[in-house]
Write a protein that binds this DNA or RNA. Structure first.
Lengths: 354, 354
DNA sequence: ATGAAAGCGCTAACAC
DNA sequence: GTGTTAGCGCTTTCAT
């Protein structure tokens, strides 16, 4: 009939408090607390009456109140809000790992401006989450170390090492080597690297893009191609990558300069912008090969078919959560994990012309 | 040098409480409370000393504690976690609308199983968010009405009308009419509709997919094509749409039955799966035209170029938040808004063969 | 204008 | 095994 039915059978969260339950069950409110926490010292009889009262009243403990004293069973995930599909993959992995736990995942999207990067992290901390998974390449280690005194933290995509928090990253050096060798094997020599702004790739900053940047140079050097190395900077999303590439192509046309025969893009999001620009310019990957990093689902689309390094985001998200659960269960020494990436070859990389 | 620097200038949330601030400023803690709330009754002198103490201690009020008594300045956004990129667009809009407000957005991804759809909603309610924006087509209106007694709610993509909560949706009937007329004008007669399972399109359920489903039939009827109407069901993501389409194509090949000349997919995510299947089968859009709904960024990629109905997700996300802020500011009558969609024609729709 | 006191819904000692 | 009690860090009357 109309939508006023109740397709999903459940009752909405009520206003009942722990005391209401206690009253109905004829016990003290701390007894109820013990029951909902599965704490030690409750007789089967009491547990039963309390349980009955709980669902008679549709009682749900306030996560807010619990968080103030003990745990609110909440895990916070902070990530850029720039809609890079890779983050969706991460979320999927995190959700999967959390499915059978009592914890709830809440995601705080961060505005991408550098100075604002830590706001979402603070917001999550203010909300007393039990633990934090975060992607904040630019936030300082000292700041994180201090935050980690309040709650366990797992940082994604950082290659730094801290006793205070865990890190989990793709082996970006290896991944980059895989693409670069692939391009070299195809015969490319003028391989450009299109990446983010200098802030993100600063030497020693140990962000994924910084590591890829250095590995790119190392690979060029190893192949004796130092002289052909060329780094092009662009913004954070595919639209900016599109614009940057358009400019690159136009400039080359006007000046007659040689274009690179291959571009290694810092990530898939950038690469999709580059691909759009290449196609919109009437060129194909016979003119310019394109490879990148991440392995988002879209790269496997036959019309896109991007050669990319799959950094296995699903596993990464799941592992991050697992690390956090370990911490929550008592682990105190920090861990640094590296996930081995895999090259996935598509039709966007081909032998160079001539 | 090393990553231990502090590129982002800020101090991590400290452990200081409102009492610490009060002590340092030599005032009562309730005075501090008044200052941080901009409440009435604080002398300039006191405000100044308190403010000084606040940033001397790096004090940040606990959102958790605030939520228990007043407002925690948190807005909850519940959405499916099936990684449909359209939801990223929505988040972007919501973030933009919230940028200059004191509210923080937290997203709770919901597991897609029908019976689990309301879990994320409950989780957010348990966390005492100030208001809720949600995409839960299947949750009953009665359930929502009850939840709305605890906090204001804005439901996205629902065409039902409730005095309890606001609704905001694309004009799905209009959007569907736009695509169907486009296909008809191209000369198509055998137009199939590929959509979700029957639960989501049940008559009168007033979900976006139900409305599109009915508008599809209405359009076919209006064009005198009732006999050619054909609805194909598939799962929630592009992989399932891919598999469904592959089966469709194989069956047609084996049985010799006629394929539709055009497919109207329930959303872009489904459509991308269909497109993959078409291309992987060695067919093109000259064989089967393809149109869909949503207008996610990827559809504009030249190698994809999907004809789709742009439902303006960014505006939708922003408007949803605005509605919520209005509620938070005191509005009590409910509102129902419809956003006018726009057809965006790509190369995936062409005249039929023959 | 300021502060004392009550209490939000819980958890966790600690009594009994 | 069960209940009493004391907070967690705030907001919010209500005296002063």
């Amino acid at each position: 009939m109309s939508a006023s039915g109740d397709p999903v059978s459940a009752t909405p969260p009520g206003k009942a408090t722990i005391r209401d339950v206690a009253r109905l069950a004829g016990v003290s409110h701390s007894a109820v607390s013990k029951v909902i926490r599965n704490a030690y010292g409750v007789s089967p009889g009491m547990r039963e009456r309390v349980t009955a009262a709980i669902d008679a009243l549709d009682y749900r403990p306030s996560a807010t109140a619990r968080a103030m004293r003990g745990s609110g069973f909440t895990i916070g995930l902070e990530m850029p809000s720039d809609s890079n599909p890779f983050f969706n993959v991460l979320i999927g992995g995190a959700m999967a790992a959390l499915a059978d736990s009592p914890y709830q995942l809440v995601v705080a999207p961060a505005m991408s401006a550098d100075a604002l990067e830590f706001r979402a992290l603070e917001a999550l901390a203010d909300r007393q989450v039990d633990g934090l998974v975060a992607i904040s390449p630019l936030v300082g280690t000292a700041w994180l170390a201090r935050l980690s005194r309040q709650m366990p933290i797992v940082m994604l995509g950082r290659h730094d090492e801290s006793a205070a928090y865990d890190t989990l990253a793709s082996d970006d050096a290896l991944g980059t080597r895989l693409v670069m060798e692939h391009l070299r094997d195809l015969g490319h020599r003028r391989i450009a690297h299109l990446t983010h702004g200098a802030a993100v790739t600063a030497a020693g900053s140990l962000t994924p893009h910084a590591v890829r940047y250095e590995a790119y140079h190392a690979a060029m050097a190893a192949a004796g191609l130092d002289r052909s190395a060329r780094v092009i900077r662009t913004g954070a999303n595919d639209d900016e990558a599109y614009a940057t590439t358009m400019t690159l192509l136009r400039d080359a046309r006007q000046s007659g300069d040689e274009l690179p025969t291959a571009i290694f893009a810092g990530n898939d999001s950038i690469a999709l912008g580059v691909q759009r620009a290449i196609l919109d310019s009437g060129l194909t990957h016979d003119d310019i090969s394109l490879a990148s990093y991440d392995g988002i689902p879209m790269t496997a689309h036959p019309a896109v078919s991007l050669t990319t390094v799959d950094q296995r985001g699903h596993e990464m998200g799941a592992t991050a959560v697992t690390l956090l659960l370990e911490r929550l269960a008592g682990r105190t020494e920090s861990k640094q994990l590296l996930i081995e990436p895999r090259l996935r070859v598509g039709t966007s990389t081909r032998p160079p012309r001539s």
